[in-house]
């Protein structure tokens, strides 16, 4: 098996190289949409968790607990089957359904990131702002959030890296990401290991370099404190 590895790799790359590029594109698109959507809804959830109204808080908490307490794959299945049933008139493609599912999932994690980022800002900052006469909302937007962003941004980037890996589960539904392409190539060439190696290298190169970038960003933000 291993004797043929090098020529097999050559075969995989020459015939299907473009599929990897395409898969990488889909993986990145899926991850980006997930984190962007997750950031919007996750921030909303974080604000809900800090709401004055107990019911609003309870709803947000329940959401986060349910998402974190069930497998992502289950959630993907759920949205994949449920969304077209619930909204037949929208004619959602499976890519969109899966993206929504991933956003649903990521929102819960982003919520906790945002919440932790806000709570890491010394409460004295809020008190100082409030004693000057700023309202709770003004203190949040002008004093707390700008400081929280420094804690939140690196954690959000890490979430992006985590999501890149998690999107591989979406290949169960053949949405065109890297793992989908692996399955396609494996089926065409009857080669199991070689295309897997290529996909693995791509994933690793992506997440490793991103992690290094994030570490740099973090140092920058800290230095600018």
């Amino acid at each position: 098996m291993f004797t043929n590895m090098v020529p097999n790799l050559g075969k995989v790359m020459s015939r299907y190289g473009f599929l990897f590029v395409q898969g990488l594109g889909y993986t990145l698109l899926l991850s980006l949409l997930t984190v962007l959507g997750g950031t919007v809804f996750g921030s909303l959830l974080a604000l809900m968790r800090r709401s004055r109204h107990a019911l609003v808080r309870a709803l947000a908490t329940a959401y986060v607990e349910v998402v974190r307490g069930t497998p992502l794959l289950l959630q993907l299945y759920f949205f994949y089957f449920m969304l077209p049933e619930l909204l037949p008139m929208l004619n959602l493609s499976k890519f969109v359904s899966i993206t929504i599912a991933l956003i649903f999932n990521s929102s819960a994690y982003v919520c906790e990131i945002v919440r932790a980022g806000i709570e890491a800002v010394d409460f004295g900052q809020t008190e100082a702002a409030r004693t000057l006469g700023l309202s709770a909302g003004q203190a949040m937007t002008r004093i707390v959030l700008p400081q929280a962003v420094r804690n939140i941004l690196p954690a959000l980037c890490n979430e992006f890296v985590a999501v890149i890996k998690e999107t591989s589960l979406a290949s169960t539904f053949f949405v065109g990401d890297l793992m989908t392409q692996y399955n396609v190539i494996r089926g065409n060439l009857f080669l199991v290991i070689e295309p897997l190696l290529v996909v693995g290298v791509i994933y690793f190169a992506l997440t490793f370099s991103l992690s290094k970038l994030i570490a740099m960003l973090e140092r920058r933000l800290k230095a600018g404190d």
Binding site: Q125, A128, R130, T131, L132, G133, Q147
Partner: peptide, 27 residues
């Protein structure tokens, strides 16, 4: 009412993301 009552804390609670002048001018 708080606008008319200034308060100074033991630990300053200066806004670290603003310049010295912005700290004074913001509110």
């Amino acid at each position: 009412h708080r606008q008319r009552m200034g308060m100074v804390f033991q630990h300053f609670n200066i806004f670290p993301h603003l310049t010295v002048k912005e700290n004074v001018a913001l509110a």
